[in-house]
Design a protein around this nucleic acid. Structure first.
Lengths: 198, 198
DNA sequence: CATTATAGTGAGCGAAAGGTCACTTGTCAA
DNA sequence: TTGACAAGTGACCTTTCGCTCACTATAATG
């Protein structure tokens, strides 16, 4: 089927672009990794740049489907410990899922070159997380689990350090376990600081 | 003088590598930007990779000289507002100094490919900042300006969000002013949260 | 069974890449 | 004045790049 190969090309492109960047990737290797010859991929995409654009389209669509709308917001935890649990589930998933790791790496590598990569990077690494946890913390304040405070500021103060540790895992995968422990310690410290009494 | 051109080559390499990455940079363009022809640079460096390694040597040496030793630690502020002032001076400098911006971008682009870039990136973006502010916060606790708490944890919680905003400035320079205001707001919120009374 | 569209092949093209080398030029010490 | 050397030139080499095209194998359709 045509669509099958088309998808497989995008998957291989994600893998190679995330390792070597767009400029460092060549079509011959990409084709070979799919068991076909260079000219074969040109039956499906008219150029290397077309592959890149299709990959970005897919990443943008995926982000929109999974994190873009209000219906995908996480449930508000019922206890301070619930925040830690939710965080650890999210972090454990995001630092181990190969596809998500590669997506982050691609966005990191191409953020200065491509406008759409730049915008998606900011969403992925900063504003998306902040928005999500603004909602969570607003809910937790309503439930009396957190002291009243600026929920956006708290969301930023909470997600940015975790995001930094996720980037560390991408950069130095052998430190993943340690980074995850740091996330947990940070999360506990956070509820100790901002949690309503106990 | 030989050294002059050698230095100029490194400067041009930093500029091009930070824009297009190592793979996306070619020696012809690099030479042309210096007003000489491709073979000219091979009088000073034996290969593209040698230029890259020399540039990394220089970045590592620079980092060691300016942030590596205890003598370059910033003075401990005498008031909570002093922390904000110091932070704003540092951030204003680091997001406007072209050379430092380019250094961060190069480390960002090459962190997955080169071991030394990876290590320097972690120092630059994470551990270096944390170590520096661990010292600052320890001093501020001793002076009674901050509540007793784990200074390493506070340093991480303080520097990681600021680092995220610096990265945002690198990615979207037009947001620099807004990001700086966010740093200031965050810094104020931080001393309000952790500062002793007031 | 003939037709036709599609996925894939393999040879090859022009451009651009990194790198080499014989040569010129300018500078300074002997 | 001359000899030596470092800096820079321009032609050229090989390899690799993105991409094209005439062709084949296959499988579904009339």
């Amino acid at each position: 089927m045509a669509n099958d190969t088309k998808e497989r090309i995008l998957a291989a492109a994600l893998e190679m672009f995330s390792q070597n960047g767009y400029a460092g990737t060549n079509i011959r290797e990409l084709s070979a990794s799919l068991g076909l010859v260079k000219s074969g991929v040109y039956k499906h995409y008219e150029s290397k740049e077309a592959i890149w654009n299709a990959l970005l389209d897919q990443m943008i669509a995926y982000y929109g489907e999974h994190f873009g709308s209000a219906e995908h917001l996480p449930p508000v935890p019922d206890s301070p410990e619930g925040l830690v649990d939710m965080t650890m589930r999210m972090v454990n998933f995001t630092v181990r899922d190969e596809r998500i790791i590669m997506t982050r790496k691609v966005l990191t590598l191409e953020q200065y070159r491509d406008v759409r990569a730049r915008e998606l990077a900011t969403k992925h690494f900063l504003t998306g997380l902040t928005d999500m946890f603004t909602h969570v913390f607003t809910g937790m304040m309503d439930k009396g689990l957190l002291h009243r405070d600026d929920p956006k500021m708290l969301a930023f103060a909470y997600t940015a350090p975790i995001s930094a540790l996720i980037h560390l895992c991408d950069r130095e995968p052998e430190k993943t376990e340690e980074a995850i422990r740091q996330v947990e310690a940070f999360s506990h410290h956070f509820i100790q600081t901002y949690g309503a009494d106990d």
